[in-house]
Design a binder for these strands. Structure first.
Length: 320
DNA sequence: CTAGGATCCTGTCAGC
DNA sequence: TGCTGACAGGATCCTA
């Protein structure tokens, strides 16, 4: 069974959160949270006592938010933002000196996912630990280097009214091409990259899948949304669905194969990404050099040949 | 209303 | 070697 999701440099976007949801289920579903400890005040929003002494009844996801339903009518919302991690450690492992634990043994006893770092292999809690959820048979650590992530307690019935959840757009597979085109028509002046990253318009894409979707569609990230053809808009939506679904599907297993036996980081992106963090390398489609530019304040990777900024001759994409 | 820039935060790394 | 500043980015807040 796969326990470790170790994809170097990957910020938790929709596919990563979905992988966490599926993986964590095996460890905490129907189990009682005995005790909760918050080590960084900002990281826990709401009444911490509402989370202790109750069972986990379900794990859901909305966009990049993980929703953990509890038996007392409350829901724990977890947002990992950029550097958040959820790490499960079996009680037995916690009792041992981690240095003495064989790597393969640790693999069997822990589930770790989110922004990859050496935390996955270190003794916990550590400096980056923000919240600890204690179960009878183990502990769940919410770690976060940059303190942008958080957990939040909400009444289950009010999750949909939470300002973040309520503002989320549809996920790409719940949207028709027509709907997405209508959204684009309302934001004609926006840069297409900025539109893809706006969770209020389409939920789940982060920097990686935005770049990958743009490459898939052959669209330059700095183009204004209003200049996109209906076909290009449809292709972008298709790209979002396909790149994220592929990531979810390969999720656990592919990522785990990239964990090297010595515990060093493997590189999931290397086999998955076409353009993301591949600047200086050859475009997998045409062989031109992938470049990195700055768009909407974000590092952006593209192939200028496959994603030209000016598209004079209609939408003929024979070369791409 | 929209678009775009600053902000939060800490670890890493290039450059002097 | 050790310091400094740039950079990484999801979401929110603020301004025009």
């Amino acid at each position: 069974m796969i326990k470790l999701c170790y994809n170097e440099g990957v910020m938790p976007e929709l596919p990563e959160v979905e992988t966490i949801r599926r993986g964590l289920k095996d460890y905490i579903l129907n189990k009682k949270i005995v005790q909760v400890e918050c080590l960084t005040e900002k990281a826990f929003l709401g009444d911490i006592t509402e989370v202790a002494g109750v069972k986990v009844t379900g794990l859901r996801r909305r966009g990049k938010a993980l929703l953990i339903d509890l038996s007392n009518g409350k829901t724990l919302m977890v947002h990992l933002r950029m550097t958040g991690q959820l790490i499960w450690r079996n009680a037995e492992i916690m009792r041992k000196n981690l240095l003495e634990v064989e790597y393969t043994e640790l693999m069997k006893e822990q589930f770790a996912a989110g922004h990859p770092s050496k935390n996955f292999m270190e003794a916990l809690p550590n400096r980056q630990t923000r919240v600890i959820f204690e179960f009878l048979d183990g502990k769940l650590f919410f770690n976060d280097q940059r303190k942008f992530g958080f957990v939040k307690v909400l009444p289950t019935g009010e999750v949909e009214q939470d300002t973040f959840i309520a503002s989320l757009g549809k996920e790409p597979w719940d949207m028709t091409g027509e709907e997405f085109f209508a959204i684009c028509q309302r934001h004609k002046k926006a840069l297409v990259k900025a539109l893809l990253l706006d969770q209020k318009l389409i939920a789940g894409l982060g920097n990686i899948y935005a770049d990958e979707s743009l490459f898939y569609a052959g669209v330059h990230p700095e183009r204004r949304v209003g200049s996109l053809s209906r076909a290009e808009v449809e292709k972008l939506l298709e790209g979002a669905c396909k790149t994220m679904q592929a990531s979810i599907d390969s999720g656990g297993s592919t990522m785990a194969t990239y964990v090297k036996p010595d515990g060093s980081t493997g590189n999931y992106l290397e086999q998955f990404a076409q353009v993301f963090r591949r600047e200086g390398k050859a475009c997998p489609r045409c062989g031109e050099e992938i470049v990195k530019i700055r768009v909407a304040g974000r590092g952006t990777h593209l192939c200028l040949n496959c994603q030209p900024k000016e598209r004079e001759n209609s939408h003929d994409q024979a070369e791409c």
